[in-house]
Every structure is written in structure tokens, then in C-alpha cells.
Design a protein around this nucleic acid. Structure first.
Length: 321
RNA sequence: GGACGGGUGGGUGAGUGGUUAAAACCAGCAGACUGUAAAUCUGCCGCUCCUUGCGGGCUACGGAGGUUCGAAUCCUCCCCCGUCCA
């Protein structure tokens, strides 16, 4: 017995939240954020969390579930999401994922390999060792552990090399082998994916307009408050787009004008990376427009209906597995 | 009017006779990515042709001439910008 699940994918500022709310109201659904930044409590404006009004209108999940000091992982996200999905299934509600973080969506839908969790101790050792050795050190280590994996990862990609070495060492066998054993895809659900693909120039305009709106909504005060709250300097969410720049500005290290253009630029690049990722996502029904446009919302509803997702039917559709 | 300094590819900016379509950085474009993913990394980045090659042709370092086998690099004049002196 499988039930439908809707996933809305698309770049930042493409209107995923607005579309999700609309679909949830029409289809009897609840929203499950699939976004690595909205997980964090307190970082609200810059991560473009759904508005209080939207959150009142429709129930949202997996927003504000972590403290700033904690750090999210794809595996952890998957666990939490599965728990939420089971709850929705029990209550006969349609899950609507708003997916900005491609890796998390993939981790949920396709699963992750049964690989060891990250070890901060080991990572720290590797990082230190890389710092005192000539370039290419990590790749040489990985080459000894797993030649194929070493060839796939660029010598400069310290982050991925460390993860690969970590898996080899902790699992006591090559990463390639661990990955080859496959991953446990999500079962019991049929994912129906809607992709938002607005015109590039229009998207960039939205990004700029949204940045102004975020600042007008008090983003800077939010950052000031977060800084004053005693969070560690290195807290993960300060790496999110905008938070670092605004913090630098508040410390007098960056002019507001420069901070703004840096934020806009980082956001545009982020949007591009999201588009590159989602282009490869299988079985996406692409709509060329923004999720808050009525025409796009109508089209999304039509297409979902064609895929067997309709109002009132979601908990009643018999399915052969 | 005079004395210097400077004008380089979308931007910043190296380069002072040949291995230079021109360093580097930024921007831009494309891409990779199975536990940091709003992260991390890679490629391309004057135009054009093809047999896609450490391939051919064309255009390019303010403008016009000149020197030279060869010039972004040297010379002459002109234009523009900056600083200083009148």
C-alpha cells in the first residue's frame, strides 16, 4: 500500500512555499520542509521561512527543530522526515515537500548508503595532517584506501576527501564498496515531483527584491539579536547566505552596500547550483513560472491530478504495491 | 601653458621586443556532488572554421603612423584620465 507524496523542487525564491500552501489547502496536505537552513531555530528572515500567516493556514513540519549550536546531516534529516511522513500517513494527510536542498530530498527518497556517521575526532586529525603536508596529501591517503574513489574526487576538495577517507577507515573497507551495496529507498510512498523553473532574469529580479524585503523586515536586527544571544562564533547557521555578511557589517567590517551585493550574488549562485542539481532529478514535471502565480498553481493542480493526486482521494486510494 | 603618472579582454589588474589570445583575481556560463550541501569542488570563459588538435584563420592591449624578421611592450604625433607646477 503506497500513498502519494508531493515534492516541489526549484531554486530559492521560485515560490515553492506559496505553491505548497496552495496545494496543501486544495489537497488536504501538510507541508514538510526539505531545506537544510529552515531546520534552525532563530534564523528566520534570511532563510525565507514561511510567514506566520502561512504557518497558521497550513501545518508545517521540520522547521525550527534544531538549535543554532547543533548541526544537521542528511541522515538525520531523513530520519526526522520519515517520522513525519508516518505521522501524516496515520492521519491521512498528503505530505507536500518544499525542497530546496537537493541532497536532503535525495537522501529521503533514495536513501543513503549504510555508511558510518561522521567522526569529528578523525576529521580533525585529517585536517591537521593536511595542513602540514604538501597539497594532494588527502587524495594520496584516499588513493591507498580506495583508488577509484580517489580518482572521482578532486584533490582540492578537502571536504569530500575527508568524508570518503572517514568512511573507509571507520567501515574498514573502501567507500566505493559501501556505496555499491546500495541504499534503502523510501518505501510506502509514490513521489510526485513538481519543478518550478522561472525565467532566469525574472528569478534574479525576485532574488533582489526579496533581499530588500528581508532587510525591510528586520533581518539586520535578527542578526544583531543572534549575535547578542551568545551563540558560538562558529555556529553553523552563521554560514548561511547573508548571515555572515550581515554579521561582518554589524562589526563594522563591511559596508551595507557591499554586504547587500555580496548576499545577492551568493544567492544567485546558490540558485544556479540548485537548478543544476534539480535538472537531473528524475521524473519532475517542470512548470515555467513562479509558485505564487495563480496560473502555475492551477497547472500544478492539474498535473498532480493527472498523476493521481486529487482532493479527498489521498487517503482512500487503494494501491497495489 | 608646463612637469610627471596612467590608458590592457565584462571589471580590477599583471605584463616593458619573441614560448602572449595576453598572468592573477572577480564577475559570467556549464557541471560534479551518498551525513557541513545556503556547503565543497571542477571545467569553460575574444570571434570563427574544421578532420576537435599542445589544429587553422581573423580580431585585440586609447587613436594614427613608424622602427623591427617580430610590438601591448621601442619611436613620433594626437586624444582622454589623474596628480602637481603656472
Amino acid at each position: 500500500m503506497t500513498a502519494p507524496l508531493v515534492a516541489i523542487v526549484g531554486p530559492t525564491a521560485s515560490g515553492k512555499s506559496a505553491l505548497a500552501v496552495r496545494l496543501a489547502e486544495r489537497l488536504g496536505g501538510e507541508i514538510v520542509a526539505c531545506d537544510s537552513t529552515q531546520l534552525y531555530r532563530g534564523f528566520d528572515i534570511g532563510t525565507a521561512k514561511p510567514s506566520p500567516a502561512e504557518r497558521r493556514a497550513v501545518r508545517h513540519h521540520l522547521i525550527d527543530v534544531l538549535e543554532a549550536g547543533e548541526s544537521a546531516t542528511a541522515g538525520d534529516y531523513r530520519q526526522r522526515a520519515i517520522t513525519v511522513l508516518e505521522d501524516l500517513r496515520r492521519r491521512g494527510r498528503l505530505p507536500i515537500l518544499t525542497a530546496g536542498t537537493g541532497l536532503y530530498l535525495r537522501a529521503l527518497l533514495e536513501g543513503l548508503a549504510d555508511a558510518p556517521l561522521r567522526s569529528e575526532v578523525l576529521r580533525e586529525r585529517l585536517r591537521k595532517s593536511a595542513a602540514v603536508h604538501p597539497p594532494g596529501h588527502l587524495q594520496r591517503i584516499l588513493r591507498k584506501l580506495d583508488r577509484a574513489a580517489a580518482e572521482r574526487i578532486a584533490a582540492a576538495d578537502e571536504q569530500k576527501l575527508i568524508r570518503a577517507i572517514e568512511i573507509c577507515l571507520l567501515a574498514r573497507r573502501p567507500v566505493s564498496e559501501v556505496h555499491r551495496e546500495g541504499r534503502a529507498a523510501l518505501s510506502g510512498w509514490r513521489a510526485r515531483k513538481i519543478g518550478l523553473a522561472p525565467d532566469r532574469a525574472a528569478l534574479y529580479e525576485r532574488i533582489h527584491a526579496r533581499l530588500d524585503a528581508m532587510l525591510a523586515a528586520g533581518w539586520l536586527d535578527e542578526v544583531r539579536r543572534l549575535m547578542a544571544s551568545g551563540l558560538p562564533e562558529a555556529a553553523k547557521p552563521f554560514d548561511f547566505i547573508g548571515y555572515g555578511e550581515l554579521r561582518a557589517h554589524l562589526r563594522g567590517k563591511m559596508k551595507m552596500e557591499d554586504a547587500k551585493s555580496a548576499i545577492a550574488q551568493a544567492t544567485r549562485r546558490y540558485a544556479k547550483r540548485q537548478m543544476a542539481w534539480f535538472r537531473r532529478e528524475p521524473d519532475v514535471v517542470w512548470l515555467s513560472g513562479f509558485g505564487d502565480e495563480p496560473a502555475i498553481q492551477q497547472e500544478a493542480l492539474r498535473r498532480l491530478e493527472a498523476l493521481g493526486v486529487s482532493p479527498g482521494l489521498n487517503d482512500a486510494q487503494p494501491r497495489s504495491v
